[in-house]
Amino acid sequence: MKALAILPGFIPMDQIKKAAAQILPELELTADASFEKSDADVLIVTTFTKVDAGLLSRMPNLKFIQVASTGYDNVDLGEVRRRGIMLSNIPVANKEAVAEHVIMFALVLLRNFVQLNSQIRAGQWPVLTGARELKGKVFGIIGMGAIGTKLVERLIPFEVGILYNDVRRLPQDREEFYGVKYVELDDLMRLSDIVSIHVPLTDKTRHMITERQLNLMKDGAILINTSRAEVIDEKALIKAVKEKGIRVGIDVYEKEPPDFKSELFSLDNVVFSPHIAGATVESQERFLMETIANVLRYKQGLEPQYRVV
């Protein structure tokens, strides 16, 4: 087996090289995808590297691509299929990180943390705040997949009411176990103090949150998006922030990095993170471990896990 890893330049390559030498000596590491030819049969990539016909044609021996992340938008699936190459992602490793990030957004917004922090940095000592508790609030989760479920597990001790909507309803015993209640999307928007979105982007979910749904929300309610930007109609969102005082936590953008001239970035009640809800030191370590484990599996002649193609 010969393996090639194309990693983004900002990753501490030296450290990884040292570790790789211990585990997979035949692994070649590079930050540059513009090589002329590689005879590697295994390719490891992150989402930062485009895997298209151009790259694939320069790797004639390629049999297995391991994407070291959950998403694999960067891979031309048609081309991979046509060439009969196996493709795996790592679908397990960052759910907890995303769930924590969502709770952080909720707390930061409930506690007016951003304003308090900047006031103190400006030498002020604010005494009265409108900080609110998470306890007793109603948390609406759109999309009860793997991340939605991790979020629920973490929310249980916060003593919140949990509503959810999904194309598929959980079995009744699961609903009981998690203490969640299934409601229609409109009811979820209407009843929740905090709404968090965890759906994949499909034709059905594109702009599933429009002006109509946002208008159902309570004034001052919180909307958190760590899934895909396209799920929400951004113009309607800006309007809801301005007119209904909706507070928002955003991790995902239609274009990344986004157009910073958008009105979104001038609004007070919105907090941002740069699409890193799932990216923590710990989750990167888990990605790495799973990636290595899957490549080792392949090397031993076993079927790699998490096959996408």
Binding site: G136, V138, L155, I156, P157, E159, V160, G161, I162, L163, E175, E176, F177, Y178, G179, V180, K181, L191
Partner: peptide
């Protein structure tokens, strides 16, 4: 409706 009820049940489990 007491929307927190099911969470209470789950926590008490």
């Amino acid at each position: 409706e007491d929307l927190l009820y099911m969470n209470k049940v789950a926590r008490a489990r």
